[in-house]
């Protein structure tokens, strides 16, 4: 019994780390937009939901496999980001937080209803992927689809980190997170900066939607769940660094997996969102936050 439980625990922890790896990518887009442009995007989860549906559509129509859908999803969501910025976010940059929330809740309503109209609220289970197989290390099973999703996520975050630290634009973004006024005085076109930030934020969402769709089903309410989850990760991480987001994501991935695996799959939301509220109470500024 003891050995069995050990195996189960190890297995659950492995699942948790994998989940966290994917959550990190989804949360990074949110943290970027919130940090750099100081913009509250309440509809972030709805964009993830939309990205999952699009990944589903692309994989059943064109690619036959969700693994290839980032090829379309990344540029598509970059474009959606640009459109969203020009159409909506641009007006909100200087608005008070309450107006930002109100307007992006409006976007949430629109996107959610759009998904309802197009897919009639039908849950779409992940299409079949050639990576839907696994190998085992001793008694531990390693599913290939989730391993792949986590690997892609880590590589992307690594590249993003390089971009933020090594390129002029990335440095401007990080600087903007600290002090928008100063960046603007330095001669950086903040409008263009925010436009690109929104684009990158949603491109990350597009990629994460594709990755999640390799192993998980999507429904129109997925938006709400991922929205809360990514905000919870940002709350824990603060707006510091890619590393902070990664650690916070893995903590939430572990909480998710342990709650489902060792307690009850129906209780995972109690654990995740209960943890979220506790974090807000105990650490209003996040673990690694600057603000």
């Amino acid at each position: 019994m003891g050995a069995d439980f050990g195996v189960q625990l190890l297995q659950t922890i492995l699942f948790g780390v994998m989940l966290g790896g994917v959550y990190a990518l989804a949360a990074m887009g949110l943290a970027l937009l919130f940090g750099v442009a100081n913009l509250v995007n309440f509809a972030h989860g709805e964009y993830i939901m939309l990205a999952m549906y699009m990944a589903f559509v692309f994989s059943v129509t064109i690619f036959q496999d969700p693994v290839l859908t980032p090829l379309f999803n990344i540029p598509l969501f970059f474009a959606i980001g640009v459109i969203t910025y020009l159409g909506i976010f641009k007006r909100l940059i200087k608005a008070p937080p309450l107006s930002q929330i109100a307007a992006t809740v409006g976007v949430l309503v629109l996107l959610r209803n759009l998904a309802l109209a197009i897919w009639a609220a039908e849950p779409k289970a992940p299409p079949y992927t050639v990576f839907a197989t696994s190998f085992s290390i001793g008694p531990i099973i390693v599913p290939l689809d989730k391993l792949l999703a986590m690997a892609v996520s880590f590589v992307t975050l690594f590249l993003l980190n390089l971009f933020l630290e090594r390129t002029r634009l990335g440095v401007a973004m990080r600087a903007s997170a600290d002090d928008v006024e100063a960046v603007s005085l330095m001669g950086v076109d903040t409008n263009r900066l925010f436009l690109l930030t929104t684009g990158i934020s949603l491109a990350l969402v597009g990629l994460s939607g594709s990755l999640i769709m390799t192993y998980q089903a999507v429904t129109p309410t997925s938006g709400l769940l991922f929205g809360l989850l990514t905000w919870a990760i940002v709350a824990l991480a603060g707006l510091g660094t890619v590393k902070g987001i990664l650690i916070a994501s893995i903590i939430f991935g572990l909480a998710d997996s342990l709650a489902s695996g060792l307690w009850d799959p129906r209780g995972r939301e109690i654990v995740l969102y209960g943890l979220f509220i506790l974090i807000l109470w105990v650490r209003p500024k996040g673990l690694f936050g600057r603000r």
């Binding site: 709400l224 809360l228 905000w231 919870a232 709350a235 939301e269 969102y273 979220f276 509220i277 807000l280």
Partner: peptide, 9 residues
């Protein structure tokens, strides 16, 4: 967000 989380919890 915390009030929304309350609904799901």
């Amino acid at each position: 967000l915390s009030s929304l989380a309350l609904v799901l919890i």
